[in-house]
Design a binder for these strands. Structure first.
Length: 431
RNA sequence: GUGGCCGUAGCUCAACUGGUUAGAGCGCCAGGUUGUGGUCCUGGAGGCUGGGGGUUCAAGUCCCCUCGGUCACCCCA
């Protein structure tokens, strides 16, 4: 039996699991702070949901979907992105939901692509969506939230790239103009784009090939062709970002891979990471999505953030990732009576919300202290003959060995007074 | 999906141009006499050299296939 996880997937054992969990906790706290509510949608959907919304020629649909037939022959697909499913669920129940509808999710996405570091077939995403808000302030809030999340972790080397890709009014005209331009410069394009640019002309602007770049540099820019409402919207977004204290660069070549995007497109990149894994989160506005699904006009904006990449970026910047709080007390019972008392004490501590544990077997004091250390406990609480007699507990701080006796019923308050976070992280910053 | 590089204990690596029972450090586990972890000392476990096939008297070392990792494309998160 091959014990390795399937290609492109990850096992998150301690301490990595603890770090991912901490990211979830922080994301939840941040989202709630901004009035977003948690949602979940199924791990798989009818394939059509993604093929219809992402566009038949998109990379996701043409080569990256995990698609399979169930036993009744229905085509299903493991969720490759979060926006379409949330919109689908919302459209089916929008009467009951407030407007704007602000939602967040923490879940896994699946894409069949060749894995490498920072690029997995299954990855975790923190995503937020705002439905029913046309105002640029919504775009700015979404972007500022992503920024706040990353900076809250201590990341500083991050850059926001912003663009507008127009809407159904100005984009078609621009697109025609661009196609005409590319056609005129056809022989200067890379082999790959020479015959393909009609399918997805905006892509050429983003191509890293030198030849394409040269052409792209001369190509008409979408930002020069925006209709008035789109131009006003872009101005509004920038004004909102400015108010939030963010800086950004306008990136006219930034496009989005999915068809339903309109106007705002953005990416946060970590320049220290290789280009393949540099995008920490990306998103934009998708005012056309609801209608593709047969719903009414529902403007929307959101982002998806790759959490494995956030962890990579932290490592790259040499920042310790937060970890979920660990054990506050490991109770060490010496001797048969001590062992029994230790378990009573553990029950009492847990009952009042103090994370406590003890050995299942009665082992030598030394061994149990070692267990306390390995468990990452802040304190060891020792209960031996002496303590039993005096109705006390020896509370030992494991970081420096400082210890003193406290009354047996005072352990919880003694511990709670100091907090219980391991690894030097302040306690209580998440909920 | 395309191309390149790589794959030896849990981790980082060693083993002259193919040549005896594949080693080390760290980590892990157990002890160091009766109540003190993380330091120190001693001992121990742990590898079908990713898997399969081939060449050879002989393969960790060479060849093929396969699985996986990684880098560059593609694209993204």
């Amino acid at each position: 039996m091959d014990l390795r996880p399937a290609r492109g997937t990850l096992d998150l054992l301690p301490p990595q699991g603890s770090r991912m969990r901490a990211l979830y906790d922080r994301a939840s706290a941040l989202a709630r702070l901004h009035g977003y509510r948690y949602v979940e949608t199924p791990g798989f959907e009818i394939t059509e949901l993604f093929s219809a919304t992402s566009g038949e020629t998109s990379d996701v649909v043409t080569k990256e979907m995990y698609t399979f037939d169930d036993r009744k022959g229905r085509s299903l697909t493991l969720r490759p992105e979060g926006t379409a499913p949330v919109m689908r669920a919302y459209l089916g129940a929008m009467q009951e939901q407030p407007s704007p509808f602000k939602a967040y999710y923490l879940t896994r996405m699946y894409r069949y692509s060749r894995p490498q570091e920072g690029r997995y077939r299954e990855h975790r995403q923190f995503g937020i969506e705002v439905f029913g808000a046309e105002a640029p302030g919504a775009d700015a809030e979404v972007i500022a939230m992503g920024d706040a999340f990353l900076r809250g972790l201590g990341l500083t080397r991050i850059e926001l790239q912003l663009n507008s890709i127009g809407d159904e009014v100005c984009r078609p005209a621009y697109r025609d103009e661009l196609v005409a331009f590319l056609r005129a410069n056809r022989d200067r394009l890379s082999d790959e784009h020479r015959d393909r640019f009609v399918d997805n002309p905006l892509r050429v602007l983003d191509c890293k090939d030198d030849a394409c770049r040269a052409v792209a540099a001369e190509a008409p820019r979408i930002t020069d062709r925006l209709c008035d409402p789109c131009r006003a919207h872009l101005e509004g977004v920038q004004s909102g970002l400015k108010d939030a204290g963010l800086s950004w660069t306008l990136e006219p070549t930034l496009v989005r891979g999915l068809d339903y995007y309109t106007r705002t497109a953005f990416e946060f990149v970590s320049p220290g990471l290789s280009p393949q894994q540099a995008t920490l989160f990306g998103g934009g506005r998708y005012d056309g999505l609801a209608e593709v699904l047969g719903g009414p006009h529902v403007p929307g904006v959101g982002f998806g953030m790759g959490l494995e990449r956030v962890l990579l970026a932290l490592e790259q910047e040499g920042i310790d990732a937060p970890e979920e709080p660990g054990l506050a007390v490991f109770v060490v019972g010496v001797g048969e009576a001590g062992h029994a008392r230790a378990h009573d004490l553990v029950r009492e501590l847990r009952a009042v919300g103090v994370a406590a544990d003890a050995a299942f077997e009665d082992r030598p004091l030394k061994a149990q202290l070692k267990m306390a250390d390995r468990a990452g406990a802040t304190y060891a609480a020792i209960v031996g003959e002496r303590e039993l007699e005096a109705s006390t507990v020896t509370l030992r701080r494991l970081s420096d060995g400082d210890q003193h006796e406290v009354a047996a019923d005072g352990v919880a308050s003694a511990v709670a007074a100091v907090g219980s976070a391991p690894g030097g992280a302040p306690a209580g910053e998440t909920g």
